[in-house]
């Protein structure tokens, strides 16, 4: 795996947990982190669910280095369409991404490592032309823990 991505290699695997939307609605999270493009990229597949397993938001992101070694992220959101996110400076144990969507929103997403098997996820979107001080509604946050998916027993 290429150098800028090495710190994220420890997150590869399956994660699940609970969280809530800003209005207090409880949600379930599922996230899968995998390598892509011959280990030149990391793929994040995230889903949040409400009630009777209704998909609230699905996000699939590809994070990889540009030729100048700076990280960039492109992906797709079931709520906002195509997204292009850039990492924002933060601590070593934080992945913070922000950028525009094709639907005219500004999406922010972060993962904060609590310990080797725990991540805090937050997400928020606001209109790109929102005035300063605009309070975004519908933001989500939650805690994800590393899980081992059930596999059918082999023959």
């Amino acid at each position: 795996m290429t150098n800028p991505l090495i710190r994220l290699a420890a997150w590869i695997g399956d994660w699940a947990g609970q969280g809530e939307v800003a209005d207090g609605t409880e949600i379930l999270f599922r996230m899968q982190v995998s390598s892509a493009a011959e280990e030149n990229a990391v793929c994040f597949h995230m889903e949040s669910w409400i009630g009777e397993m209704q998909l609230l938001h699905g996000l699939r992101l590809i994070l990889a280095p540009r030729p100048d070694r700076s990280l960039h992220c492109m992906g797709f959101s079931t709520r906002f369409g195509m997204v292009n996110l850039t990492p924002t400076p933060d601590d070593e144990d934080v992945l913070a991404l922000a950028g525009p969507t094709t639907s005219g929103m500004q999406l922010s997403f972060s993962l904060i490592q609590q310990d080797a098997d725990t991540l805090i996820a937050t997400g928020m979107a606001r209109p790109q032309d929102a005035p300063p001080g605009f309070t975004a509604a519908g933001g989500t946050h939650g805690t994800l823990r590393r899980v081992t998916p059930w596999r059918p027993p082999g023959p």
Binding site: A37, E38, N40, A41, I62, A64, P65, R66, P67, H72, M74, G75, F76, G81, M82, N84, T102, S103
Partner: peptide, 18 residues
Amino acid sequence: LGPDGRIIENLYVERFGF
């Protein structure tokens, strides 16, 4: 699909980036 119904591809290739 983009807002106009046409297909958009967000692409990463390690040789030249995004």
